[in-house]
Simulated assay, not measured.
Amino acid sequence: MPSFLLSSTFVPLLLGAVAVNPAWSATSGGGNGAASDGADTGLSGRVARLYADSAAVTRQYDTGRQEAAKQRAIAGRDEKLLTHEHGLIAALHQDLGRVARAQYRQGGGLPYSAQTLLPDSAKELIASQGTLARLDLAVANAVIRSRLTEAGLAAEGAQASARWRALQKRNGELVARKQALEAKLEQARWALQSQANVSAASGACRSAVRLDLPGRKTEHPWVAPVEAYRLSAGFGSGGDHWSHGHTGQDFAVPIGTPVRAVGSGQVVRVKCGGAFGMEVVIRHPGGYCTQYAHLAAVTVDPGDRVRTGQLIAQSGTTGNSTGPHLHFEVRSTPEWGSGIDPVPWLAAHGVRLVRPSATR
């Protein structure tokens, strides 16, 4: 029997206003070439803010869709239980009718149903008006209990249906909100990429863009360089855009995707121009270096100490690139030509990359 206790704490919270990140500040760093202008700094911050807001709305939509499905299932279950209760109540009413008719025919004696169901010894014990009254009361009480169950199921089902309709409406609003954010983000991404192309063409990087982003805490000493991706060209693969085998692992991601240090270390190179476009190289304890290339913006300067998961850049498509992606290398030195396959190297450090079929 359902208890009719449906938690409603989550739904009002979900139906509240969409929380977005507050206005994030962005200031230029120094010591990395020409001074960064305000347009570039503000544009990087705008891309980062829109990127995070879009991701937040997506998470809210996914949560709301799951909750809507849950409320729809509750309403469907209650509808089935109500049908069962209606049948039970109809049967109890038939029992009451049979008892009443039997009492009438027997002149108030033992009802016919009791005569046919009970042994002779039991018939003799309960063949009195008081016992008949108790039998009638028992059936009547069963009807009342079933009616209460019916009312509870109807109320719970109505509440679940109302919540489902409210969630569906809110999810529609979230879809519209995400579409608007994505349109703004797409414009900001390509504006950022245009400025990055100018830097890559001139070979002079702007100073690091210091984005005041929320920190990403991790208990792991190593992480993937981007959080959502599709693996594309792998280490050693052939292609028209490199003369020998591919020297890294490509992560297909949109322009402006946050790029993070896979482990703690020190920035040893920030460079613009050439085949890699805008790039960052970090040396880690133990001597290995990691390279992040084809970037649209950089948030660190040479000599900076970075921690695992720290934002170091925004992805792009500068240099010898066929489209937006992050080119990631693991090297035994900071220089090109000393690369090793990043996938098993990351796996050996506890980071298993997700294959294309499991990513967006």
Rank of each mutant, 00 (worst) to 15 (best):
S207A: 09
G215P: 04
A200E: 04
Q187R: 08
K217H: 13
A183C: 07
S202V: 09
T218H: 04
C205M: 10
Q187V: 15
S194R: 14
L211F: 13
S207F: 03
S199M: 11
S207R: 01
A188H: 15
G203E: 02
V198E: 15
P214A: 05
L211V: 06
Q193I: 06
D212I: 08
A183H: 10
R206T: 01
Q195E: 15
V198A: 11
R210I: 08
K184Y: 03
S202L: 11
S199N: 13
N197M: 09
A204P: 02
S194G: 12
S194N: 06
L211Y: 02
R189A: 00
Q195V: 15
L211T: 13
Q195I: 13
S194I: 11
G215C: 02
K217C: 04
A196S: 03
C205H: 09
R210G: 13
A201V: 07
E182M: 04
A196L: 07
L213S: 12
V198M: 10
A191D: 09
E186Y: 10
A200I: 05
A196Q: 01
T218Q: 00
K217A: 05
R189C: 07
Q193C: 01
Q187D: 12
A200V: 01
D212C: 04
A201F: 08
A183E: 05
L213Q: 10
A183M: 02
D212R: 10
A200N: 13
A204C: 05
R206H: 08
R216D: 09
C205K: 07
A208Y: 01
A201L: 02
R206I: 05
Q195N: 15
R210V: 14
L192Q: 15
P214G: 10
K184S: 12
D212E: 14
R210S: 10
A191V: 10
A191C: 07
G203Y: 01
Q187A: 15
K217W: 09
R216I: 08
L192I: 08
Q187K: 11
